[in-house]
Design a protein around this nucleic acid. Structure first.
Lengths: 375, 375
DNA sequence: GTTAGTCCTGAATCTCTTA
DNA sequence: ATAAGAGATTCAGGACTAA
């Protein structure tokens, strides 16, 4: 399925880059992609910051073995410049309501996080991937490094319309909110891509389960997910399986070959399986007055709260009256309780066969009618 | 026990500052302390939360936010300058083989980590404090922020002689290495310091169990532990109990008073090296979605109750669909039976070799996979 | 005394649409 | 652009009260 394209051949046509792997430098490729063209980004950038032993700059050029403080600073600086460049280019490509995930370890994640903030990204959460089976610390001189950190950020502070499938996550998690600490095994066994020699095809292949949760949480079917450090193509494989589109950027042909074969073998899920649970937020809005117009509520109907402490009376204009005052069901619910906000749909009840029933039940009936009428 | 001293009166004599609280500005106080004089530092600096307006719980009660003046900074730049100044001053005071711990959240920890690296500190681990009882995300727009991050660093890369009580930690952890993810409740109940009015004495008091593990891991009895943001004095209280010395720096008299009384009441342990490191056991809670992520359950799988009266279909989002409706395994189990509640794990079955098998069997398999060496 | 129900609170960067 | 109105949203644990 995924074609491979040299970056130089890229045009603005979506068919030219969607569900493909762009071969070349990450920043150069990002700069050729159209502005505001992807819904989400998942990035697993290199963090070769190891300052002992062989030292490589992010561009893979070798650094003379020096271990003084100045060289450390120099190396961090190079890493920061690299990070800034790709995060900036990625931000241009991201849609205004898109979000970005970056995964890293303590070697690089602090620098990445600071740069994200510097460039105007707005951090939504940091998420910890707890490993069930991390590598032990062999020297016994530190804690067992048992997690990695992901940062989830929107394009900027004001972007409130980002995708977050809150209700689905909660329903899939024993009906409690999904937390920021996730537990997954590292990628081993059959899932781990091997080369012809049996050696692992990529040193840092991420588990598909991790990507699945990321994409199920923050994207919708049909969205485009960009991975600027495509590597073994986990992002592409999971995106395809879950009915999302992907774009990968990768420099090394060996990784491109492995990822291509891997993604080709993925069978996408059917549409019904991909539906995402949504909550009230996604329901069409109903004006209270429309219940009166539809005859579901008669003017003059008496309302009360669930414990019958306060009563109100429905007026023909869609407001309710409490004593001499009148206003929306929400306003008056707040007023009687002395609060500054109230959901009138769930606060006010009417009598149905002797049982206090919330107005929300009538709203459901109304939505049913509208759905039937539309069909 | 702890005397309080104005910074101006400080001399180089250790008796002049050990087991005392220095009242004044953090950097000024650090600059008056002797070079290379403390074995460890634990710092809980302001997080720079950048809160917007008020936040209310769904029941309309207002969240008591951390809106203190000491947490307000004009910009990331201002916060960086502040961070750099105190980390630099702290580094001078730290012994060559000393280590520093800094705790923070995603608001500030990335900036702190980057500055630590810039200044020559060498990160040994990042440690995640998982909270058993974090505050929920009330608006349902993000993941529940359920952890904070601590960075543990040596004074520089070449410092190999830092204290790490590997064997003691392992022995106290069911004979497996201590991991970087720690589980503790937040500080509440009797441990939480209250003012005369019953209000919390400090907005961000840390649990003693957290500090106990930090000090047991990285200090020895008789060591001096510095806390440049002393606050309610948790570091001092735990240090005293575990037979370590402390130095606190704090600006606000109210916090100094609370910490002084608190530390006075602490009784040191006879054998601090035998102190038990208490932590919560990791609870093996399994989310239904994790079965899907792990490939144990495929989207599209048909479920039914034991007597095959009702069927449901698994979706990729971790919910199950019955007809046009979808929800958690528990909600939909209750729905089809017309009940208020239902245990979806035991109610829903799938076909295994012709026999209806409850989802709970797969949960058992999952528990095996997710078993983590003791928390 | 026991148990069940209610209330309170914690480092929080917490909405969306229409006028 | 800003402002205002509609209306959607919570988990664990300790303290307290009522049965």
């Amino acid at each position: 399925m995924p074609a491979v394209r040299p970056v130089a051949d890229l045009t603005a046509s979506r068919t030219d880059w969607c569900d493909t792997i762009l071969k070349g430098d990450c920043v150069a490729a990002l700069e050729r992609l159209p502005e505001h063209s992807v819904d989400a980004i998942f990035a697993d950038p290199p963090y070769n910051l190891q300052l002992g032993g062989d030292l490589h700059r992010p561009d893979q050029s070798k650094v003379d073995a020096v271990d003084d403080a100045w060289d450390q600073f120099d190396s961090f600086q190079a890493y920061d410049a690299f990070t800034r460049a790709w995060l900036l280019a990625a931000r241009r490509v991201l849609k205004p309501n898109g979000t970005i995930w970056v995964i890293g370890s303590y070697h690089n994640i602090f620098r990445v996080g600071a740069k994200l903030q510097d460039l105007g990204y707005w951090i939504l959460n940091d998420v910890v991937w707890r490993k069930t089976n991390p590598m032990p610390n062999f020297r016994g001189r530190r804690f067992q490094n048992a997690h990695e950190t992901m940062i989830w950020a929107s394009r900027d502070q004001k972007a409130k319309g980002y995708t977050f499938n809150y209700e689905a996550l909660k329903a899939s998690n024993d009906d409690v909110q999904m937390r920021t600490d996730w537990l997954f095994p590292i990628c081993t066994g059959a899932e781990r891509l091997k080369g012809a020699d049996g050696a692992k095809a990529h040193p840092t292949q991420k588990p598909e389960a991790l990507l699945a949760r990321v994409l199920m949480a923050s994207t919708r079917p049909g969205d485009v997910v960009l991975d600027p450090f495509f590597g073994s193509g986990t992002t592409g494989a999971v995106a395809k399986r879950l009915g999302r589109h992907f774009v990968g950027i990768e420099r090394e042909q060996a990784y491109i070959d492995a990822a291509t074969a891997r993604i080709d073998a993925v069978e996408p899920l059917d549409n019904p399986e991909l539906a995402i649970l949504t909550g009230k937020r996604a329901e069409p809005r109903i004006a209270f007055v429309s219940l009166i117009e539809a005859g579901l509520v008669a003017p003059g109907l008496e309302l009360s709260d669930a414990k019958r402490r306060w009563t109100a009376r429905v007026r023909a204009d869609g407001t309710v009256a409490v004593g001499n005052e009148a206003g929306s069901i929400h306003k008056m619910g707040a007023r009687v309780q002395g609060l500054d906000a109230c959901n009138g749909w769930t606060f006010w009840h009417f009598d149905r066969k002797g049982a206090p029933t919330p107005l929300d039940a009538l709203r459901q009936d109304m939505r049913q009618r509208m759905a039937v009428a539309a069909a």
